[in-house]
Amino acid sequence: MAELSESRAFTAPEPGEDWAALAARVLPGTPEGEAVEKLQSWNLHLFARHPRGQFLGSDVVFTAPPAA
């Protein structure tokens, strides 16, 4: 099977996950506040959405910053 080029990493929220829980899963070892802040800054499409801070099951959550 042909290799894929590198792309921006993402995940999908698991049932019941909030920003803190998702941050703990995808950025282990990073202090919670810092991890949440990073995730929110990489996912303004979710963070800026009403109601703020809630995931929908189908959301794409980026776990890396956008390419420069």
Partner: peptide, 24 residues
């Protein structure tokens, strides 16, 4: 068919957007 963007008449997400990837 499914949608990741649409909203209903109250401007709230349609049901398919609440489905986790495991459901899809």
């Amino acid at each position: 068919s499914t949608s990741f963007v649409d909203v209903d008449e109250n401007l709230m997400p349609v049901p398919s957007r609440y489905a986790h990837f495991e459901e899809l």
